[in-house]
């Protein structure tokens, strides 16, 4: 699954540690999501949506076959 986390984070001038703290996860988790190595749980996806004040489907994009 692709996501716009890195772009959205850069727009707000947040470091990975800053976003990790806002989401209450490790910085490594943010890095893994940004690089596509880890898909967040539904709960974390909702939290990300709240932190960026955007709908989930505008942050996470389904990859086409």
């Amino acid at each position: 699954m692709k996501n716009r986390l890195k772009v959205l984070r850069a727009e707000r001038d947040w470091s990975q540690a800053e976003l990790a703290g806002r989401l209450d996860v490790s910085r490594q988790a943010v890095n893994a999501i940004e690089t596509g190595k880890h898909d967040p749980s539904l709960g974390l996806a909702f939290k990300i949506s709240r932190v960026f004040d955007m709908p989930i489907e505008t942050i996470f994009l389904e990859e086409e076959d």
Partner: peptide, 12 residues
Amino acid sequence: RNPGEARNRARQ
């Protein structure tokens, strides 16, 4: 200014 980074440091 960086509440997330402060929480991240506490987590560490």
